[in-house]
Design a protein around this nucleic acid. Structure first.
Lengths: 298, 298
DNA sequence: ATGAGGGCATAAGCTGTCTTTATGAGCGGT
DNA sequence: ACCGCTCATAAAGACAGCTTATGCCCTCAT
């Protein structure tokens, strides 16, 4: 009963269909838009209603409108579809095509959390630009740029690799997070940096970018409660109540919005780091690379 | 080519399976966890790799590890699954069960954007609590509470309906948003409130909570460029570049993260409003209602 | 009134996907 | 060398979803 999400949530096709019905106010019209026949759409919506146990649309001989519950469900569905669009944008870029017009190399965090959104925006403006993506650490990004295997790079370190020009495109903040039940979640005053340094934390392994920034900010004092090898593992541990952690706000946006994690304000430490776009010195980005770069600086 | 997302993105079952593989490091183990056989899991992962055109796992006689690309895809998948979990939490609450132990009435914005997350958190702590949800405006929320059809309510108006006690659980900020291509998106200095009042905006219809707050803050001066009847329609119009709008930050979090919308800083206006939990005067929430209430105040 | 058109429902048949069962084969620790 | 874990392959069955072909209902215009 814990799993089986797929049996309780309609599939993407059904959700897209529902969004089309919401937008067009007609089952048949929605059917046409998604490329199926009207009876198929009708049946699909109906089985979705059976699955959820809630009426979603009011069917009338002159169209179909969402019920109140339907409007709510549609909005929740929209988020799933949005996440799926980001997935799709990323996955298309990941497919290796050596004839890709725009080759991007990015650090893990940026590739995971930021690039899909940028690619969606890029696709909106330049639908035909084929993009390929390679994710790695700062060193591999630099390597690919310098050997002309990538047109544009993104890094998040404290320093810019040699041989590259860069612009700062955003500032990433490391933030302290806990499970909602943790004592820190109910604090009314910001945490002092000394308190943070004195408390055992769930940490990434030494050498990770996040860990480096934290150690630097705290003067190498961060105490490990556990050390884990991926951001995801750290998040999971925090959510399960194992303790507090310090993570990029990019990595925990979703969890904060869903209230699975709580942000704890801190004072007296600077946990910011720059996110930079990089390219070989002198080779100013042109064409699609320039477009992507300008998108990131909104 | 515009639609067909469902043909390019694996279904939820496959994504869950992939997450299980990532967590357990074994196809067979993942298969067991999601309740299918090992060959089924193997075949499903393989067809996902065909679909995406990328190898996701390294299969070895002593387990399966994610490839680099696989790790990236898995993280994108995690977001879809998280959205699906929120959908599920909301949908379960929506299913009308008169024997529900906790009956919640909430305003639209809160029901859409905040409640699913809270319900997930509540479920984590109290898996067996059955919740029912009714969404409406402040007046209907009050009505349901006073007629004992709901145990706890959430409203977002400027005032608290008569007969109810309340606590502020969060502050919602209305923010100015535009498409990334809009001139305001490149501003370096905050917008003056007079500029905002002088510019025709995409607005919700008069009478909506959002519109009320905006009109109050601007002294009834907001100029409509168009008036639309749902937050979603407004967002769509803004994304398509029709013009700027003022919306709850709750409603546009996703779009901002995906860079489909850009936030424009404003100075000189207070566009905050309180989100409150409410209950009949004297009837302090107890039991599950109290649990939910305390979750919301993190 | 009456016919045209848009909208939705139902029925029957087909197709494709995903599943299970059954089996084989590689690698590692005992 | 053997047991236990891993994964792969093959064949057959179950199920969900699609399409085509109808029919009914409602509204609007003639």
């Amino acid at each position: 009963m814990g799993g089986g999400l797929a049996h309780r949530v309609p599939d993407l096709g059904a959700l897209e269909l529902l969004l089309a019905v919401a937008r067009l106010g007609s089952l048949g019209g929605a059917a046409r838009e998604v490329g199926i026949t009207q009876p198929a759409a009708s049946s699909r919506i109906r089985s979705m209603e059976r699955q959820l146990g809630v009426a979603l649309v009011d069917r009338s001989p002159r169209g179909s409108r969402l019920t109140d519950a339907g409007a709510l469900v549609t909005d929740w569905a929209r988020r799933i579809v949005a996440a799926a669009e980001a997935f799709d944008a990323g996955a298309q870029a990941l497919r290796v095509r050596r004839d890709s017009r725009l080759r991007v190399a990015a650090s893990m965090t940026i590739a995971e959390y930021l690039l899909p959104g940028w690619l969606l925006a890029l696709r909106a403006g330049r639908p035909d630009t084929a993009v390929s993506l390679h994710a790695g650490n700062s060193a591999t990004v630099a390597e690919r740029l310098l050997s002309d295997e990538a047109d544009l790079g993104f890094v998040e370190g404290l320093t810019v690799p040699a041989g590259l020009d860069s612009v700062v495109i955003a500032h990433d903040h490391l933030i302290v997070v806990t499970a909602p039940g943790h004592a820190w979640a109910r604090r009314r005053r910001p945490l002092a940096s000394t308190e943070l340094a004195a408390t055992p934390l769930i940490l990434r392994e030494k050498g990770s970018g996040t860990r480096q920034v934290l150690d630097a900010a705290l003067g190498g004092l961060a105490r490990p409660l556990i050390e884990l090898s991926s951001t995801t593992a750290v998040k999971a541990a925090v959510v399960s109540g194992a303790g507090p952690a310090v993570l990029s706000e990019l990595a925990v946006g979703e969890e904060l919005a869903m209230r699975r994690l709580v942000r704890v304000p801190v004072e007296g430490v600077s946990l910011a780091r720059d996110l930079r776009a990089v390219w070989p010195t002198g080779h100013r980005p042109v064409g699609p690379a320039r477009d992507l770069l300008s998108l990131t600086r909104a």
